[in-house]
Amino acid sequence: MSLWIWNLIEALLIIGMAPFTATLVKRLKARLQNRRGPPLLQGYRNLAKLFIKQPVLASQASWLFRAAPYVIFAATSLAAAIMPVILVATPLTSAADIIALVALLALARFFTALGAMDVGTAFGGMGASREMTFAALTEPALLMSIFVLSMVAHSTNMTAMIDIVLNTGLGLRPSLAFALAALGLVTIAETGRIPVDNPATHLELTMVHEAMILEYSGRYLALIEWANQIKLLLFATLILNLFFPWGMAGSPDPLYMVIAAVAWFGKLLVLFVLLALFETWMAKMRIFRVPEYLGLAFLLAILGMLTHYILEVGV
């Protein structure tokens, strides 16, 4: 029973911290570019402002347009609840494996695209078509890179995957390095960061995610933006906990939990500094180059799988 409570706390931690971490990335990026950046609580202020404002709906908007933000937020939050953040073995993780997590994110994406196309504006349709084109390439790459780790652990259950990294001497596994590189590339594409999409503006013709949510306002927009921030934190946690799980709590002892939470936040900080550096260093690429970029991620994942078979299984 207490495990369920811990699970709830973990989920609320991710959902509650998401606006903070998103602002943190923004601020780190601003600092690198000699700007001051927003104060760290700006994420919460923006959400509060949007929740108070009255939403404006297009006259043709159907129930789907209004329901989509709730579905997106619910699916992303549930995905966050599945993810083991601090504790290795949470009850929901044993109920749903990593394929379910990817499926929940796909559901959120599907409803974002539906909501975008519902009103029938040109931007919404354009953004949705781009998003789905990229999704057809990111999802196989994402699953493939995760499967490399599941093949090492012989399970798609995240607890088992984390356990095997934590408890066995992994040694040098080139397959995991390939998988990590692929997952990193996919994360940047999935969370709409700079070489693929620009999260800071909705004034570009090459925008993808912002084009889809252009028609939303008020609490609907707040829910979608919040879900997007959760997604960023979720992917960061996915990378950290699957590949660098050291410090995670094995048992729900409050002391271990605190240590694990601090370790998680420290790792998160390092990852976000890297992300900010990467975003400052890269220029946004042409939209027609994105499939090539995602093809590279897919190739790396495949290579990870093959090197796992070639170098690590036979020995």
């Binding site: 040694g171 040098l172 080139p174 390095a177 290579l303 090197t307 170098l311």
Partner: peptide, 23 residues
């Protein structure tokens, strides 16, 4: 058979060869 660390390094080097050819 126990795989030593150096043997694993050979595996890593082989993987790097493969990566460079793809590059």
């Amino acid at each position: 058979m126990q795989v030593t660390l150096l043997q694993q390094w050979v595996g890593v080097a082989a993987a790097m060869m493969l990566l460079v050819v793809f590059a």
